[in-house]
């Protein structure tokens, strides 16, 4: 018997070995790759907004079975700390970074490095204005502004006279919201008293609003572009007995704001859905990593909450994040 006659069984054996090898290879744990690193604006446990973003991100990571690392500044110098975190994250070579930028201009170098390293960049919450990214997952802040304008002057029977208060004049989100309001209430139809930076202080807000009510007795609206200072503003209006005539409109929720809403001291809250933002941020990152197409902008509709609908099941979930 010639050894050449062995070829067929040997070939079949080889084939079987190949099948087995292939099977074994496939059995290796689905590699999560470099995974996803999520960098939030703060890791502060007192920030229910960011904690909810976080739980949404974790829910997505669990469901999609991807490795996830959650980072966020904890100190006072948040923007600087975030820069460091982003630099560290790029060095760790994840497949994708989900970033909620605090100050885009400070991250310029890192954002370029991220691009160069081929790491997919998903932006959440605050848009990037001058850097490329793979997808933006957030509510439409301009639309939020438009909704706020509608709440302020639903019928325009009375000419709206209103002021913006903010804690951070550089905030892109705040300026987009303002843009939305101004779009709906152009100068001819309404009168804007301008934007006043009240800082993070409740007291400052109280004093500012109080002097505004004195200076402009015809004022009928205040739009708080960021979450701080609303309690002070509400207290000032209450003290002046103007709670019902001046509509106080805020964005996103915190317990003081919810209580103000409950008591009728606040007219409306435009609330984003941080859970969905976190979830869709990670989900989009995972999809982009796998080369699936995702829109440049994944819009997350925001909800308008008033005292009338605040205890509806959907809004309860939004206003009172369930953190166990």
């Amino acid at each position: 018997m010639g050894s050449k006659k062995l070829w067929l069984p040997l070939l079949l054996l080889l084939f079987a070995a190949l099948v087995v090898w292939n099977g074994l290879k496939r059995s290796e744990p689905a590699d999560a790759g470099g995974g996803i690193i999520v960098i939030l604006q703060t890791k502060d446990v007192n920030s229910s907004y960011w904690q909810t973003v976080r739980s949404g991100a974790m829910a997505a990571a669990k469901e999609l079975n991807v490795a996830l690392e959650l980072l966020g500044p904890t100190g006072a110098e948040a923007a600087e700390e975030q820069k460091e975190l982003l630099r560290g994250a790029i060095a760790a070579r994840p497949e994708a970074i989900v970033l909620a930028p605090i100050a885009e201009e400070r991250l310029s170098e890192e954002l370029d490095a991220c691009r160069k390293a081929g790491i997919k960049l998903i932006v959440i919450d605050t848009p990037l204005l001058s850097h490329p990214y793979d997808s933006y997952v957030s509510s439409d802040h301009v639309e939020e502004g438009r909704v706020a304008a509608d709440m302020l002057a639903p019928d325009k029977r009375k000419k709206p006279v209103y002021a913006f208060i903010t804690s951070d004049d550089d905030s892109v989100v705040a300026s987009q919201r303002r843009q939305g309001v101004l779009e709906k209430l152009p100068p001819g139809e309404a009168f804007s008293l301008g934007t006043i930076d009240v800082g993070k202080s409740e007291e400052q807000a109280y004093r500012t609003v109080k002097s505004l009510t004195v200076a402009y007795p015809g004022m009928n609206g205040i739009v708080a572009l960021t979450d701080v200072g609303v309690s002070g503003a509400a207290r000032a209006l209450e003290d002046q007995g103007l709670s019902h005539s001046v509509k106080l409109i805020g964005f996103d929720s915190s317990l003081p704001e919810i209580q103000l809403l409950e008591r009728g001291r606040m007219h409306a809250l435009i609330v984003q859905n941080p859970f969905n933002m976190g979830y869709l941020g990670v989900e989009t990152a995972s999809a982009v990593m796998q080369g699936r197409k995702r829109p440049q902008w994944v819009d997350i509709p925001s909800a308008t909450v008033t005292s009338a609908n605040m205890y509806e099941p959907e809004n309860q979930k939004l206003l009172f994040p369930f953190v166990s």
Binding site: A59, N276, Y279, P313, E314, K317
Partner: peptide, 15 residues
């Protein structure tokens, strides 16, 4: 009606 769901918000948002 959903009484409890770990991702109730996603259900509300029809995601």
């Amino acid at each position: 009606n959903i009484v409890y769901h770990p991702q109730q918000q996603l259900l509300y948002s029809k995601l």
